[in-house]
Structure formats: structure tokens, C-alpha cells
């Protein structure tokens, strides 16, 4: 996302000490809320018209990966919670740190701008993925065409039920105030 010169008169507060203390520490650790199943693989492949036989053909999956695996780019799917479940009054949020930062930095809007992912062991049907969220950095005040705010970088490190590393997703977010909010 392109940066623009900061404009005079837009109020963005300092970074609270509490927020600074989160950097490089595991702030949240969670386990996937559902058993991973192959139907999701196909729904995702359908969404991008991905005909890779590794995800559709049992013989190819058996030959290459000893059975079905998920498309690697589905990694973040496995740590997104249900929108609703019994006894839950509001939808929990993935990337919880992202929303903590929106709240504690008083930046009401936010978008993801950059993403980097490294992939390890393939994810398979029946796996349960554990994820650790870690804040890596918060930027100085920046201005983009969306508004004025701060960029932040968050890691989500994922392992399977055997403790094998399956991947790390690094998300850069931009929290901001639009011009009418600032």
C-alpha cells in the first residue's frame, strides 16, 4: 500500500506502553475449533477454480503425499473460529492481536496489506492445528490513501497435533482513521 505525506491536524495517539510490551511475546494460543475435513479443500479449490489433481484425485494424492492434503495456502483457514456456536454470545476473532491493536491504538478501521507464509508439513484430514499469535512490530504514524494510522506485523505460528510445524503466516495490517474520523 502506497504511503502519502502525513497531513497536519489528524490526531493519532502515541503507542501505549502496554502495547509495546506485547512485542515478541506469545499473546494468544488456540486450538482449531473443528476437525479438518476434505470438503473444505474442495470448496477452496472451487473458489479459485483450482483443478490440481493432488487435491481431487485419490491416486495422485496417494502417490505424492500418502493421502489427501489441504492446499497449503489454506493455512489460515484452520485457525478461523466458527461465527457462532451454542453458548457463545459474540463471534470470536481470528488474528486477535489485530483487533486488540485497533482498540488500544484507537484506530477504528483496519485492512491487511501484506502477507508472507512459510509452509512445513502438509495439513491432512483429521489434523488439529494449534496456533500462537505473536506481535512483531508497530510502525510510526503513516498516511495512505485510506487514511492515517499505523502498520503492524503479526505472526501466527502453527503446529499439528503431533507438534510438527505446519507453517507460519505473517500478516501486516494497517489500522487507520478515515479523513472524516480523524
Amino acid at each position: 500500500m502506497s504511503e502519502l505525506p502525513n497531513e497536519v491536524g489528524e490526531e493519532i495517539g502515541e503507542i501505549p506502553e502496554e502495547v509495546k510490551s506485547w512485542i515478541d511475546l506469545v499473546r494468544y494460543e488456540s486450538e482449531g475449533e473443528f476437525e479438518i475435513e476434505r470438503g473444505y479443500f474442495h470448496t477452496t479449490c472451487a473458489s479459485a477454480e483450482n483443478g490440481n489433481p493432488l487435491f481431487w484425485d485419490d491416486e495422485v494424492a496417494e502417490e505424492l503425499t500418502n493421502g489427501p492434503i489441504a492446499p497449503p495456502t489454506m493455512l489460515s483457514v484452520w485457525f478461523r473460529p466458527h461465527y457462532w456456536e451454542p453458548g457463545r454470545s459474540e463471534a470470536p476473532l481470528p488474528w486477535k492481536i489485530h483487533f486488540d491493536l485497533k482498540r488500544d491504538l484507537d484506530l477504528p478501521e483496519a485492512v491487511a496489506t501484506d502477507s508472507e507464509v512459510a509452509y512445513g508439513e502438509p495439513v491432512r484430514p483429521g489434523d488439529v492445528i494449534r496456533t500462537r499469535e505473536i506481535l512483531r512490530s508497530v510502525s510510526e504514524v503513516k498516511t495512505t490513501k485510506l487514511g492515517k494510522g499505523r502498520f503492524w506485523v503479526i505472526d501466527a505460528e502453527c503446529v499439528n497435533q503431533r507438534g510438527e510445524w505446519v507453517g507460519t503466516e505473517t500478516m501486516t495490517g494497517f489500522g487507520y482513521k478515515t479523513r472524516k474520523e480523524s
Binding site: M1, N52, L54, L64, P72, T73, A112, D114, S115, A118
Partner: peptide, 14 residues
């Protein structure tokens, strides 16, 4: 093809 295995990706939305 199916024997290609992703190791790492990085992208930026403009």
C-alpha cells in the same frame, strides 16, 4: 503441476 510444492509466499496488496 501437482509435484510442485510451495515453500514460501509473500504478497502485497496495492
Amino acid at each position: 503441476g501437482p509435484t510442485g510444492r510451495l515453500g514460501r509466499i509473500k504478497f502485497r496488496m496495492h
